[in-house]
Design a protein around this nucleic acid. Structure first.
Ligand SMILES: Nc1ccn([C@H]2C[C@H](O)[C@@H](COP(=O)(O)OP(=O)(O)OP(=O)(O)O)O2)c(=O)n1
Ligand SMILES: [Mg+2]
Ligand SMILES: [Mg+2]
Ligand SMILES: [Mg+2]
Length: 939
DNA sequence: TACATACAC
DNA sequence: TATGGTGTATGTA
């Protein structure tokens, strides 16, 4: 059948092009802020600087492969008979009909994406960068650039030296993930007010289903977007862009249209959707990247209308998965549900890896040493999550940039450094001799621990148990369980238990609340009386509560709920970095310092309160802090870098929706769409590139609160910080914390961590712990709006991967990733609960036992040195569950009054953004990245 | 299961 | 001189 719609006229080409011409597409494709750039100039500069490099030759190699692929497809296409095409078209018509029938246009989704995120955060620290072209990264790699720099063609993933050539005045700033994580946390705290179940796609973006919110408040998605952007501007001092649409795909694509600092809505009617999607360049679709774009263009498909118009051809040439994806995209249909939550004890991730780029090496001894380093690091990460896998993959990138992966699947699951190294070395030796610039090790095929079908889970046990008696469930150790409790699996169960406990308490408390009013609040305060002055909490009570969010999430996290935030309930934002960071680690090489983040404070009232607090630094102090920090880190310039975390996200699977049947028959779905109803004619503006508006200015006062003690507390060299396992485990959890007392949703993992770091003096290690653990996740795979799968990811972060040795300057990689948890581990500290935690940890809870182990004074358990931290976390969690019978929260107090926050979200399966799976209701998501960004710009 | 690719941030 | 790190999905064998 004929396509009723015509694709944009793109002369089908043979897919090949002149070398230079093709290369010109590198870094010149559409990107926000690049509308006015001189693409030819960029093309020439990039080409000239790259043409003799190994990297460029690798690009050519890949390009020729793509061309080859296109040639084959063309051959197949020309061999198709008209009948075959007709058959495929018919099939697609049916598929389209099914998609339409299952489409749900009644939801309202928002996709929020921060503008030039890393760069904007750096501008907060140093406002003088605002009007200068600036890039976050290093001479080796740029993570992102501010909009001023984008005018010169500088952009993400571009080598710094090319950026510098494009713009000689380009200022380089090393990435500092911890700052980005904090800012992201602050932003998310705001988002949670509109959809407590929002899904973070990465550190800088999130999907919100505001359907319920809109209904409840009789408002529209656009209005909500305006409010959110305004709040982000005021409370976080950054601008973001928002896309509003009936599904995730459309919201995601829309968020890029008015960027920066803008929003764009696609109404939920077929007319509007069709108009929008038809003209949308395919490359704008998440999941369609450089290669897919090139292939599709070879068939004359440049905009999404072409996906439908050429449905028969696409069906004949592409796999069903891709074809379905293309049809959904062409119809503007995407997921309309949040990702599904990960089952309790299930291993969410599919794999975990560690890789590093370094100066080329080929010496076996060196290679093996590198392998050992990676094994160690990976083993640590695996241990941090209690994972054991049986497939080890060794990744080698030759000096010509060709990548080789070799893997082996064992019959048993392993996790130790020794075992990992042993297997990795075998894989490595089989490849010798070889000279490489990168090595990586990945573990996958994880052992699913717990919760087997026939296995009775601890939570189930407790549930039953507690249900039978009025007594609160006894803490695990009181049940006579031994130290196996400290194992990760067991901890997961403990987590469940805590959740159940909390749930129960919550319901109890709610009834109490109903009859006693503030009683609960008082109780909460009382619990922590020693730490804080309740007075400050008063303001909280006025905070209005959003019922929805609350009950849906308050209990998710188990123990995690601690509170955090030192600032006091009245101060909204969580951030307050005051004590923040202590760098979790050592000096990173070059990264801009973590401490600076001055997260602002929010409202005037809060500001005044802050001013009073002893921690609140004056503006002057703050500046000094910042400067100091910078200076301190300057020495980094050289070698290692380390990274920090970023964040992650999730997604889930799609479900089916309710049907919308369209009139008529589908022979020509497109026609149906065309004539389909609808009112509201949105004026869709297809102005993909807006002029870069500058980044929003912030009110001076927004820069007040700050970190104060931060700088002061430098972590002693060699000091190692530990992440609170209790709070950490459950990766992927979105980090929102809700104050059980006042219901304010503010904190985040960061805040969280703020209070949980404890230093362990000596200890070995690498401080990378923190970073490492941070998030690693971030994957992406599926086509964003649509995907379907769901896997989880962790998040991660780490960064600074950089170069090692010889190169004096290392670069670090910062990347973006998503992930949340651990990453931050080391960073901050907050005032309140922090102390509690620190006491728990460091305080005299340990006594030397014979044999080198330790005796826990609280439970008399004999614990090994390596398990101390976990054990401490166990007590913390226990403590919390007891104190807070009422609800999720644990405390609400603190010195100047802090709010207790309860973590709100839980992990979800993550479907990468570009997954093609599940055409209609797919899910997906996550990310991360890092960057090598850091090489010193010294050159 | 093994490997390479594509994609996302 | 110089081009990142982590993760998921997909296609093919
Ligand atoms: N290849 C990439 C892409 C992105 N990032 C990091 C830096 C970005 O600031 C952040 C968010 O990515 P975005 O794609 O959202 O880009 P920006 O936020 O920088 O810019 P925009 O205003 O276009 O959203 O992720 C990265 O490290 N490496
Ligand atoms: Mg962004
Ligand atoms: Mg983004
Ligand atoms: Mg795309």
């Amino acid at each position: 059948m004929q396509q009723s719609r015509s694709q944009s006229a793109a002369p089908p080409s043979d897919g090949s092009m002149d070398c230079k011409q093709w290369f010109g597409t590198v870094f010149t494709n559409d990107k926000a802020g690049m509308g006015a750039v001189d693409k030819d100039r960029i093309k020439n500069i990039v080409y000239e600087m790259s043409k003799d490099s190994a990297h460029f030759r690798n690009d050519l190699r890949k390009q020729s492969q793509t061309e080859q692929r296109v040639r084959k497809m063309k051959e197949r296409a020309s061999a198709l008979s008209p009948a075959e095409i007709a058959g495929h078209t018919k099939a697609m018509d049916m598929k389209i009909a099914a998609l339409k029938a299952s489409a749900d246009l009644t939801r309202t989704w928002l996709h929020i994406d921060m503008d030039a995120f890393f760069a904007s955060v750096e501008e907060l620290d140093d406002p003088s960068l605002k009007d200068k072209p600036m890039a976050v990264g290093g001479i080796g790699m740029i993570s992102t650039a501010n909009y001023v720099a984008r005018k010169y063609g500088v952009r993400s993933a571009m080598p710094g030296f090319i950026g510098r050539r494009l713009c000689p005045q380009l200022v380089f700033v090393k990435p500092c993930f911890s700052k980005y994580v904090k800012v992201a946390a602050a932003t998310r705290a705001i988002l949670a007010d509109y959809d407590p179940e929002f899904e973070a796609g990465s550190l800088d973006e999130a999907y919100l289903d505001v359907t319920d919110y809109c209904q409840m408040h009789s408002t529209s998605g656009e209005a909500v977007a305006e409010v959110i952007r305004q709040r982000v501007r005021e409370e976080v001092a950054l601008t973001c862009s928002c896309g509003i649409g009936p599904n995730r795909l459309l919201a995601k694509v829309a968020s890029d249209i008015r960027k920066p600092d803008g929003q764009f809505a696609i109404p939920g009617n077929t007319t509007a959707i069709t108009r929008f999607i038809d003209l949308l360049p395919i490359r704008k679709v998440p999941g369609i990247g450089k290669v897919s774009e090139q292939v599709l263009k070879a068939f004359g498909i440049e905009t999404c209308a072409g996906l439908i118009a050429n449905r028969g051809l696409l069906s004949a040439l592409f796999s069903p998965v891709s074809t379905n994806f293309f049809m959904a995209v062409g119809l503007g249909i995407g997921r309309t549900q949040h990702g599904e939550q990960v089952e309790e004890g299930a291993v969410g991730r599919k794999g975990m890896s560690c890789e590093r780029t370094f100066q080329a090496m080929g010496e076996p001894a060196e290679l093996e040493a590198k392998c050992a380093e990676l094994s160690e690091k990976l083993a640590e990460d695996l241990a941090s999550e209690g994972l054991k896998g049986k497939t080890i993959t060794l990744k080698l990138k030759e000096t010509n940039f060709e990548v080789r992966t070799r893997n082996i699947t064992l019959t048993r699951h392993i996790s130790s450094r020794e075992d990992v190294l042993h297997e990795a070395l075998k894989l490595l030796r089989a490849e010798l001799p070889i000279t490489i610039r990168l090595m990586g090790i990945r573990m996958s095929s994880f052992l699913e621990t717990n919760t087997g079908p026939g296995q009775r889970t601890l939570s189930a046990f407790l549930k039953t148990d507690s249900a039978d008696s009025a007594a609160k469930p006894a803490p695990p150790h009181q049940h006579g369980w031994n130290q196996t409790f400290l194992d990760r699996e067991t901890r997961q169960e403990l987590d469940e238990q805590m959740q159940q406990h909390r749930l129960k308490q919550k319901s109890e408390q709610q009834s109490i609340k109903a009859s006693a009013g503030m009683g609960a609040v008082s109780d909460g305060h009382a619990a922590d009386a020693t730490l804080a002055a309740p007075a400050a909490c008063r303001t909280c009570e006025e905070t209005d509560v959003d019922p929805g969010p609350q009950n849906s999430h308050a209990d998710q996290l188990g123990p995690g709920k601690l509170n955090i935030n030192a600032a006091g309930c009245s101060q909204r934002p969580v951030l307050q970095m005051k004590n923040a960071l202590e760098p979790c680690q050592a000096p990173e090489a070059g990264s801009s310092q973590p401490l600076e983040l001055t997260l602002r404070d929010w409202q005037p009232a809060a500001a005044s309160q802050l001013a009073r607090s002893q921690d609140a630094p004056s503006d002057g102090q703050q500046q000094r802090l910042q400067q100091g920090t910078r200076t301190d880190l300057s020495f980094l310039g050289g070698h290692n870098s380390r990274g920090s975390p970023e964040q992650q996200q999730d997604s889930a699977s799609g479900g089916k929706e309710i049907g919308h049947s369209f009139p008529g028959d589908l022979t020509s779905c497109r026609d149906v769409l065309d004539t389909a109803d609808d009112a509201g004619e949105p004026d869709l503006v297809h102005a993909w590139d807006e002029e870069p508006a500058g980044i929003g200015e912030m009110p001076e006062e927004a820069h007040q609160s700050g970190s104060q003690g931060a700088a002061a507390k430098a972590t002693p060299p060699g000091a190692r910080t530990w992440a609170c396992q209790v709070c950490t485990f459950g990766d992927n959890r979105p980090q929102i914390l809700r104050c059980s007392v006042c219901d304010a949703v503010r904190g985040t993992t960061l805040d969280y961590f703020m209070g949980h770091n404890a230093e362990v003096s000596s200890a070995s290690a690498s401080q990378q712990d923190a970073q490492d653990s941070a998030a690693k996740a971030g994957s992406r795979s599926k086509r964003p709006g649509l995907d379907a799968t769901g896997s989880k990811q962790k998040s991660i972060l780490r960064f600074f991967a950089g170069f090692e040795p010889p190169a004096k300057a290392a670069e670090s990689s910062a990347l973006a990733g998503s992930g949340n948890n651990k990453a931050l581990a080391g960073e901050q500290r907050a005032s309140s609960s922090v102390q509690t935690h620190q006491q728990a940890r460091s305080g005299g809870m340990w006594e030397r036992a014979e044999g080198g182990s330790w005796l826990c004074k609280q439970c008399s358990e004999d614990v090994l040195e390596k398990d101390k931290s976990t054990h401490e976390d166990f007590h913390i969690a226990l403590d919390m569950s007891r104190k807070q019978p009422g609800q999720a929260v644990t405390k609400h107090m603190q010195r100047q009054g802090s709010a207790s926050m309860t973590q709100t979200q839980r992990k979800r399966k993550v479907t990468p953004s570009g997954s093609r799976a599940g055409a209609e209701g797919m899910n997906k998501r996550s990310v991360k990245s890092v960057a090598a960004l850091l090489r010193p710009t010294t050159m």
